[in-house]
Every structure is written in C-alpha cells, then in structure tokens.
C-alpha cells in the first residue's frame, strides 16, 4: 500500500528553493571573499624615501609636480640644443619652478643651480625657507628623473648620485599606489 498525499498548488516549495539557492550563493561568495583577501600592496618605504602624497607639505607637493613636468621639458630642450639648459634659461622661459615669480617665492624661494657630471644632470634648488619647502634636487640620469628632498637650507653633496644623496640624509620622493589612492 502506497499512500500519496496530493500537495496543494502554490509557490512555497519554489520560494524555498530560490531562497536556498540565494543563501548558497551568498555563503559561497562570503567564503571565497574570506579565504582570498586582496594581498597587501603596501610595500614599506625605504629609509631614504618619502611618500609624495603623505610626506610632503603643500608647497613641496607643488614643486614636485612642477619638477616632474620640467624634467620632460629639460630632456626635450637638451635633445634640441645639444646641451643642458641653465636654470637661468629655464627661468627666462617662465618654466616653473625655475621662474622667479610670486609662487616660487611663496613656495620657499629656491635658488637653482645646475651641476653636470658625466651623462647625468642635477638641478639643485636651495631653499630659503626650509619650513615651507625643503631643498630639492632634480637628478636626471639614464634612468629618468629622480627628485630628492632635504628639509634644510643645505646644498647637496658634491657628488650628485643616489648613493651620495642618500648618505647625506636626502630622501627620494616616491609615489606609491595603495588602497587609499582615489585619484
């Protein structure tokens, strides 16, 4: 004897299955997210580095941005003229931060000098107001521009390469990409 109960028509069973499926998907997704967190991309900065977003004052950030643009300009001028442009030439072209204008004064009134050694160029800017913006060096060697900072009215060492700068307490400005970057 087999007893068969006729079930009432309705969506209860289907609803239950849909809810179960939704729960299963959520649980699977939750487990996957929990088991596979995004790896920490935050590489700690070396001692001779400083972060461009968090480590700089407002004036330094402006100078840093301007120097990055100027580095391209200098490379182009160097290619066209066959020699490195002097800071005075760059100032004559009103190229920030070399131009002696009101914003340059407000950002620490840097005095720029050019040092050429071998294939590399170094534009050193001696700050008149280290509390507003430290002294800066734009180092142009074969590996692209490097911008170095020291919060003192101090001329860079005679030998302008990365090791000497780092040894003299200068810090290279680096840009890091972390989860906090929104732009």
């Amino acid at each position: 004897m087999h007893q068969q109960i006729v079930r009432r028509a309705g969506a209860e069973r289907e609803t239950l299955w849909v809810l179960l499926a939704a729960g299963l998907i959520l649980a699977t997704a939750g487990t996957a997210v929990g088991l596979r967190p995004a790896p920490e991309t935050d590489a700690p900065l070396a001692l001779h580095q400083i972060d461009s977003r968090t480590g700089l004052t407002a004036a330094e950030q402006g100078l840093h941005a301007d120097l990055k643009v100027a580095a391209d300009e200098i490379a182009a001028l160097r290619k066209a003229d066959g020699r490195a442009p002097a800071p005075a030439d760059l100032a004559a072209q009103a190229l920030p931060p070399f131009a002696a204008d009101a914003s340059a004064t407000a950002r620490g009134g840097h005095a720029w000098t050019l040092t050429e050694s071998g294939g590399s160029l170094a534009y050193a800017g001696l700050s008149a107001a280290p509390e507003t913006a430290g002294s800066l060096v734009l180092l142009l060697d074969g590996h692209g521009p490097g911008i170095w900072l020291k919060r003192a009215a101090e001329a860079p060492p005679a030998r302008l390469d990365e090791a000497s700068l780092a040894a003299a307490g200068w810090k290279r400005i680096t840009s890091t990409f972390t989860a906090g970057v929104t732009r």
């Binding site: 087999h2 007893q3 068969q4 006729v6 028509a9 309705g10």
Partner: peptide, 22 residues
Amino acid sequence: RALLGQAPHRGTIRLDWPGDGP
C-alpha cells in the same frame, strides 16, 4: 483540480495505491 494538485486547497487529499508506488 484539487485532486490533480492544481488548486491551493486545504485539508487532505490522499491516494491509496495498492502497489508499492503510485
């Protein structure tokens, strides 16, 4: 329709099959 399982009835409708299955 209720016997065919196509109506939202209440109460019990039962089929007693003599064999092992429906």
